[in-house]
Amino acid sequence: MSSNAPDTGPESFAFDAANAERAKKIMARYPQGRQASAVLALLDLAQRQSGGWLPRAAMDHVAKILDMAPIRVYEVATFYTMFNLKPVGKFHLQLCRTTPCWLRGSDALKQACEKKLGIGLKQVTPDGLFSMVEVECLGACVNAPVIQINDDFYEDLDPQRLEALLDALARGETAKIGSQTGRQGSAPEGGPQVLTGAKAGA
């Protein structure tokens, strides 16, 4: 992230009523004079309100209500990769590419996305629906390969299932979260293999 990047965001930003209320509650968790501790939570609120990314005006607003120098907020926002400093799509695809997902075909998923959406990494589709980034381990290796879309995990993907998922999202349907093969939790494929006879509490 290079500084001095042109900011395409709005001129001004303020929390809406609901978020302002939430922000107040979050700040109240910290002792008097230590409100700056709420910076991560408030930046997250601001990112959600701004459609998945943090315009500079939003960071300035957070700095103001926490009584911090704006640069201290920029430092935090640029440090954490989950704060997006450029606009993202309505569906922000976070492709896991760490070893287990890679072994299970994350490269094919990335190619499928590129082919399907016509965008590369860190790009947004012209209709503003999809954007795509690569991320490090999402911690769902058992069901690799995994893609996180906004806050939800979609697991056990292959290119066909991913295309179907993207089509469904584009149509505005709610897609099934979690394993796309019907796996129960993180259980082995085909259902539990051990302790099948035991009954709970027995």
Binding site: M1, S3, N4, Y74, T78
Partner: peptide
């Protein structure tokens, strides 16, 4: 601003 290899000293704006 930034982290690791991408850390930069500056005013950001």
């Amino acid at each position: 601003t930034g982290r690791g290899e991408h850390l930069e000293i500056g005013t950001y704006v």
